[in-house]
Amino acid sequence: MTQTTLPPVEKTQPVSSPRGSISDRSRAERRLGWMLAGPAFLVMLLVTAYPILQAVYESLFSYRLTDPNNRSFVGLGNYWVILSDPLWWQSLGVTVLITVITVAVELVLGFALALVMAKALSSIRPVVRAAILIPYAVITVVSAFAWQFAFDIDTGFVNSWFAWLPGVSADTDWFGDFGTSLVVVCAAEIWKTTPFISLLLLAGLAQVPEVLQEAAKVDGATWWQRMRKVTIPNMKAAIMVALLFRSLDAFRVFDSIFIMTGGANNTESVSFLAYRQTIARLEIGLGSAVSVLLFLCVVLIAFGFIKGFKVDLAQARGDR
């Protein structure tokens, strides 16, 4: 049995229109499109492009907020300082590790939750959906505090509830080691953002044509076969978009680490590094350079997903 998707629909070209030139009507439509989208586009430029460009500009200077008179141009010096510092590479490694772990676990969990939401009895479906979505509505800092208190050796309940697990005892200091700290940080992230991924996947599930499912059933396909050959191939675009969004989000992890470990035991992420240089040290130049590098990483991830996995962002919205 091969994968079953609907045959691609050929876009019908208007026969009458001459090639290469645009009709008056489509020109007018284009203008209308710009007029409708233009203001939003301008606002986007103002709130995203301007700060990005400013950060790029600032990153070329040695500039301390408390000492503006000694601001001096250093070219790419700040980037050299960062890229030759083992701390940057270690933070990058931690960030990638957290991203990979959380996104992988969330994809599996999120898919399961999406199936539950899609298949739940219609009478309890709204309740199930709301219940699954609650963690996503919690502010990250609040969720980080909640998880910290739960695992804390003095205030937490985790040590006494899970003492039967190997490696957990009343004296387990979760935030005292790199590995255990990361477990809690990842768990908190997964708990909080799985609903987001499951919501995107639910939208994808709804797009799988029922005809194909029925045809497969008639052919005698088992549930697992239908899942592998019909459902998943048909929602590939939705899965890729969910992965892309969540990876970009996970790469910027900050709040949980800030609250739980404060960067102790080498748990600092790249965002944390940017915070420490810019906000704590007030080294605007160096901090901007870290931010620009973080931005480049995010661009790289987005580019890698879109080109490497051929994610079609338009398709995920259902515009076929």
């Binding site: 200091d173 935030f175 005292g176």
Partner: peptide, 8 residues
């Protein structure tokens, strides 16, 4: 003679 969570 310190708490098991001394580092935190």
């Amino acid at each position: 003679a310190v708490s098991p969570a001394f580092s935190t």
